[in-house]
Design a protein around this nucleic acid. Structure first.
Lengths: 353, 353
DNA sequence: GACCAAATTGCATACGTATGCTACAGTCAA
DNA sequence: TTGACTGTAGCATACGTATGCAATTTGGTC
């Protein structure tokens, strides 16, 4: 009798019937902050439990136009930084009753991506994809959807962004190499159209300039390991190869280190010091033990979630740019005790300590 | 006049009005496989474009009870295998107009996870989480939601699964070590409640038995790098340490290798050969160059998507178990040219070639 | 030119929930 | 006892799309 239609789902109407109340009462019971007497609340909860009722999020979305879904736009998960960020982000959002829907950007198809995003009535979008990010952000913002650029600076003053302090990070990296006694420093760059690379490189140049140095080489790796290997070969085959290498990401640094050690036979850090950016989990693995400028994923995710939650309530939609501070983590690819003036190329030179 | 209400979204009714047709016509235009004349189709598309109309997926879901959302349940993305699988899966599903929603399993809270899953009217669920998988699968299946256990075998005959042939994989690993001349083989196990570990270990034991051998040591690493390190220390501190190590996952093998080489000073493969499972991207990195039994992500994802698509059409909901074949990839942590009978512990022994 | 079949179209309604508004019950004070 | 006021419950409707059914148009044939 009080059985739901044998078809499928139990609805609020079924529960209402079973509890002897109106559908509104059921709805209110499951909507925090609404007025229901304790008596009906219990009746409803009891009936709901008995029937195995679960509110239908889709119907609720249609009614409230709040989907509680956050779209996350990615280009790839190859670089360990992103999986780590996604896991953290997804867990944090889950605590607020929000869920992540994944969108992988396909090349330059902005419209396709946009259509997919918009049809789901997303409550917010986090863009962590290099390609098509700025236009996508603009269009979403225009549609009134809160957007956060994650790990890339905002395309416009309209959209928020969360980045780490890459300029400061660049300075940390450069200063550290100088402190290690390096005086022929090279930069292995990431994609030139990315704000991370731009800022990191700027910071490096700034710090070098301040101490009367300048970059000896600059090669492009475009954040691709294969290109980083090529670049490393070019760098080290110079008549006077660098004695310090700043790599724009850990992910490229692994490739560079492999090439340096296994292919070209260089010793790190005695012949070349290497420092990079991100502090991806593998950077701590024994085989690499990479000195790196860490981006704090917890801090970045926290800011991202805060911005999103803020924008849900505020009508204002004021864009915020959060810059999380960077931190140098010294491991074994650099050596602070390096003897200044030491001639590079000494095959057997070991660093002190 | 034909402007949509200034509030927000453009609806099919707005488009209908603008195109001078009924709302049904608009709906049909955007629903493949329905009858609309070319003439109205063009009128509608034109008006839609002009107004910037996008069909509302949420409303469509309410009406059709097909959300085109696939829930993916994970416990963590630490092991590179999962990010790689997710990216592949998400891209494949996107090609079919489906999207991935992420759910991170929190400890043992089945009911919480389940509620979250069920409220979204998911069209399917892919479970790649170790914990709470079997009960979750059962409940989803009971609710009529297609479930695929990814990289773990089915909890019941009711639910489908996609795994690689881990038994065969275990044999490949064991036989390879025997072929390398190892005769004191140890197994570093993954979580004992996982089907992957169970099958891999079974395969190893089988192959050893066939060739008159048996495992010398067996330690538990529970798929955790920290535990793998501990286990490695225990293994190698035995009076007669193993000369061949089979590790249940690459992710643990990296930790084991780091411990072996950097901490304990063993040479791989001359003193100990190491083989593991998964062929995660980092396994190919120069610093590890790990010999490993590959799980084909493309094949596994392909099967997963096929099963899901099948179950959408079939009412039958026949569960399928797909077993993708494994393949041994030989890199530098094992050496086929190992001299048989060679005494382990020779510090300077180099493998040939 | 008329008639029949086939192809389109529009109408009306369903999907499951949220919420403004009205109606009503209960409390308390005068 | 009556009146005003507070707190609840229920009614009715909106959210945007899909689709069965009936009405209409189209196209073709004799």
């Amino acid at each position: 009798m009080s059985q739901p239609r044998d078809g499928r789902a139990v609805t609020s109407i079924d529960v209402a019937k079973a509890a002897g109340v109106s559908q509104s009462a059921v709805s209110r019971t499951f909507t925090p902050g609404t007025a229901v007497s304790e008596a009906t609340r219990l009746k409803v909860l009891d009936a709901a439990k008995k029937l195995g009722y679960r509110p239908n999020a889709i119907a609720r979305t249609l009614s409230t136009s709040r989907s509680r879904i956050i779209g996350v736009v990615l280009s790839t998960l190859d670089n360990q930084f992103y999986p780590a960020a996604i896991e953290h982000l997804s867990r944090s959002l889950q605590e607020h009753g929000l869920h992540v829907m994944l969108f992988f950007a396909e090349g330059r198809d902005v419209d396709g991506a946009l259509s997919q995003l918009l049809t789901y009535q997303l409550d917010g979008v986090v863009i962590a994809s290099a390609t098509l990010s700025s236009r996508l952000a603009r269009e979403c913002t225009a549609m009134g959807i809160p957007v956060v650029m994650f790990n890339r600076s905002a395309a416009s003053t309209q959209t928020s962004s969360v980045t780490s302090n890459n300029i400061e990070g660049g300075r940390l990296a450069a200063n550290h190499l100088l402190d290690c006694g390096c005086d022929r420093i090279a930069y292995l760059a990431g994609r030139s159209d990315s704000s991370t690379n731009r800022d990191r490189e700027a910071g490096v140049n700034l710090a070098l300039l301040e101490r009367g140095h300048t970059l000896v080489f600059r090669e492009d790796g475009s954040y691709e390991p294969a290109m980083a290997k090529e670049a490393t070969r070019r760098l080290m085959s110079a008549p006077q190869p660098p004695d310090g290498l700043i790599v724009a990401s850990d992910y490229m640094a692994f490739a560079a280190l492999d090439t340096l050690r296994n292919e070209l036979g260089f010793e790190v850090p005695s012949q070349v010091c290497v420092v990079s950016f991100d502090d991806v989990p593998a950077a701590a693995w024994g085989a690499y033990a990479l000195t790196t400028v860490a981006q704090s994923i917890p801090a970045m995710v926290h800011s991202t979630v805060s911005i999103l939650l803020e924008q849900f309530s505020d009508q204002a939609m004021v864009a915020r740019d959060v810059i999380v501070s960077s931190r140098l983590i010294v491991r074994s690819t650099t050596s602070a005790a390096r003897v200044e003036g030491q001639v590079k190329g000494q095959k057997s030179a070991r660093h002190a300590e």
